[in-house]
Design a protein around this nucleic acid. Structure first.
Lengths: 196, 196
DNA sequence: CCTACCGATCGGTAGG
DNA sequence: CCTACCGATCGGTAGG
């Protein structure tokens, strides 16, 4: 007699997982509720019982991405050298989980349009990422670990931008780009302390 | 009695210009021949008289982008410090021509899928860009202008990736990102010679 | 959750 | 170059 709610939550998770896969392949505008529903094993009308519109499903996907990141990526990590190290580990993790990188890169490019339903999400995401990176470089600088003359704000902006740009090149030709080595190259050029 | 061919060429240019604008706003998959045709002042069937399929129009757009770049960007510039300076000038140019940056960023992200009709174009584009940047840093190194221990290959890859990543952040919030200053920051951190 | 349906839009073709 | 059309697909709703 119990379990009704549980089943619903599992269904929701199935649908979200299917949406992540399809968004990654086709982008948001390019994907259809029917294709997502099929992969989740229901009809598209059934999907709309759980998520009333196409946009509501996108919102749920972005929410779950954040929830995962808060748990695993731990923005809770205080800004500083450890955070930069952690981003390197995240890059290594991403290389083994192409789906999430695909999703992120496709949606970020689509969402530059202010009318895109994920625009505000990415504007906020970038602001937070830049801020956290800048504070990290600033903390490292105060500990004497930053090369002379390096501006923490610029270093933070470039760190975030580099990660994004490398991901697109890596997705385009995975065998041609060593994402983690390139990130390490950048950090080693800016820091005066060892990374590990 | 003359001019028939000329008129056709002008029409083609109108259609391509309209396609650039629509691709930039909606991506390739997200744009329709009807919308592009409307902006060019004809019907979608009329457009198909000039470009027989949706893919043929995309190919024409990419070809024109290359033609423009060969002329203005001059990959003819030999690898070296002048090429890096030129990329800075190109970044400054891009900031005043958002449409081309939009088009490029949207298509690049879409085209990471090997099945995308522009995939090979971007794979080649990235390979050429990395190669040219690497050779530039190598030339600078031989003239003693590269900081000790900097690998030209990594510096080239990161230079190209940084440009792409900055463009997406700049498109998402133009008032929050100074694209040219960030590029300059990166170059000044890697080079030991002044940029201007 | 499904069946059945709606109006809108898509790329492409026929025929002129 | 246009009118007129095709089959396919879209997001969403009704009604159960």
């Amino acid at each position: 007699m119990t379990g009704g709610y549980l089943k619903g939550r599992i269904r929701r998770e199935d649908i979200i997982a299917a949406a992540v896969a399809v968004y990654a392949e086709a982008g948001y505008h390019g994907s259809s509720l029917r294709e997502i529903a099929k992969r989740a094993g229901i009809t598209h009308a059934g999907l709309l019982y759980y998520f009333p519109t196409k946009e509501a499903l996108l919102a749920a996907v972005l929410e779950r991405r954040d929830a995962e990141n808060v748990e695993r990526e731990r923005l809770a990590i205080p800004p500083g050298l450890d955070f930069l190290r952690h981003m390197l580990a995240l890059a290594a993790h991403n290389v083994r989980h192409r789906g999430m990188v695909d999703l992120y890169s496709r949606l970020a490019a689509e969402a530059v349009a202010p009318s895109h339903p994920a625009h505000d999400y990415f504007a906020r995401h970038y602001a937070v990422a830049r801020e956290h990176a800048e504070l990290s470089f600033r903390a490292v600088a105060e500990a004497g670990g930053l090369r002379a003359g390096v501006d923490p704000a610029q270093a933070g902006l470039c760190f975030v931008a580099l990660m994004d740009g490398l991901q697109v090149q890596w997705l385009t030709g995975p065998e041609r780009v060593d994402l983690v080595a390139a990130m390490r190259f950048y950090l080693e050029g800016v820091l005066t302390v060892p990374l590990e």
